[in-house]
């Protein structure tokens, strides 16, 4: 927990309502951070360094897709049909462009498609994790702090949901959304639908963890003190309890990010995720699958490798974070 204390929670109100706090300059914060146990543990773990580096590279790739990708892979104007099915490291028959990872049947550069696909996969993964985190933290805090019937209701729903695999729930939510949204809007709403579907299928774990920590924190003296000072229940939850339950939440969020990316890829692979006009890694794999039997392996291979590397790197990072923040292992 001590590592988290180095990062003060962002302040929303003016200083007049809050007790005076230490103001740290950027340099001081960096110095504090370099002194922390978390940094020490990070420095001494080669697995953590490598997986963090890989994740960082992939994130940068995704962010700068427009600049780095050799071809604007999803603008039909940029494609040349004569370039179709170029082998990896081969020049296209139409545009004489070098296809590092080959091209698909429409002459789309797989290497460029990978940039855009990774960007969407990461976007959906991060957004759905934030969505389920906010929902789960909110409900968990409510349940833990208020108790009574509200707690009963929230935790029962969480129990029931946890006994079903997330993918089933996401599929169901997708089906319901299909029923409610008119067909001509499927494509424009696809990203939001899938973020909500994955987010709603994963909130229960956060709620459980936050509730358990809140139950512990609720009876500590600083919460009693805050209540005596007349701070509202909402204020206590948001400003005092929340920062103290964030440790385990961060660990779950990291591991869930890998799961959410895989979940999105699975849904898109099943054909109930992102459409081919805005392909994620899963959609690319889906479209590559039909060429596997005829020998064009690269259309499927590179997106699949990207997905596995991304998921593995984030998973390893999450494993390290869990061990580093676990006081039992210190």
């Amino acid at each position: 927990m001590s590592d988290l204390a180095t990062k003060p929670p962002p302040r929303t109100n003016g200083p007049s309502t809050t007790p005076p706090r230490l103001k740290l300059s950027f340099a001081e914060r960096v110095a504090l951070w370099r002194d922390s146990d978390l940094w020490l543990s990070f420095k001494s773990s080669p697995v953590a360094i490598v997986s963090a580096a890989v994740t960082l590279i992939i994130v940068l790739m995704a962010l700068m897709a427009d600049v780095l990708a050799p071809q604007d892979a999803f603008d039909p104007v940029a494609l040349n049909l004569l370039d179709g099915f170029a082998h990896p490291m081969e020049r296209g028959a139409g545009s004489n462009m070098l296809f590092v990872m080959g091209s698909d049947e429409q002459g789309r550069d797989i290497f460029s498609a990978l940039f855009y696909g990774t960007r969407l996969s990461l976007l959906v993964g991060v957004a759905s994790v934030i969505f389920s985190m906010v929902l789960g933290i909110g409900l968990g805090l409510l349940a833990g702090y208020l108790g009574g019937k509200i707690e009963m209701l929230i935790m029962r729903v969480a129990d029931i949901q946890l006994s079903f695999p997330a993918i089933l729930i996401a599929l169901l939510i997708f089906g319901v959304a299909r029923g409610l949204i008119p067909p001509q809007q499927y494509e424009t709403t696809a990203v939001f639908v899938i973020i909500i579907a994955i987010g709603l299928s994963n909130w229960a774990q956060y709620a459980r963890t936050v509730r358990a920590s809140t139950l512990v924190e609720r009876n500590k003296e600083y919460v009693h003190a805050a209540r005596l000072m007349g701070i509202s229940g909402f204020g206590i939850m948001a400003r005092h309890v929340l920062p103290n339950v964030m440790g385990p939440v961060l660990v779950i969020a990291t591991i869930n990010l890998a799961l959410a990316i895989i979940e999105e890829a699975t849904l898109s692979f099943l054909g109930v995720g992102l459409p081919i006009t805005q392909p994620s890694l899963g959609t690319l794999i889906r479209s590559g699958q039909k060429f596997l039997l005829s020998g064009e392996w690269w259309i499927l291979f590179f997106p699949a490798m990207m997905l596995v590397i991304l998921a593995l790197a984030i998973n390893l990072l999450g494993d390290w974070l869990r061990d580093a923040l676990n006081p039992k292992l210190r």
Binding site: A258, I262, A265, T266, F269, L270, I285, Q289, L292, L293, W297, L300, A304, L307, V308, A311, L312, N315
Partner: peptide, 28 residues
């Protein structure tokens, strides 16, 4: 560890590729 990071559908595709496409041992 790799098995846990590999999504189910990729395992399926991999097995099809190895046992059906490459060696032709089993139906795909």
């Amino acid at each position: 560890l790799i098995g846990i990071s590999l999504p189910t559908f990729l395992i399926g595709i991999l097995l099809i590729f190895v046992f059906s496409v490459s060696f032709g041992l089993l139906p795909s």
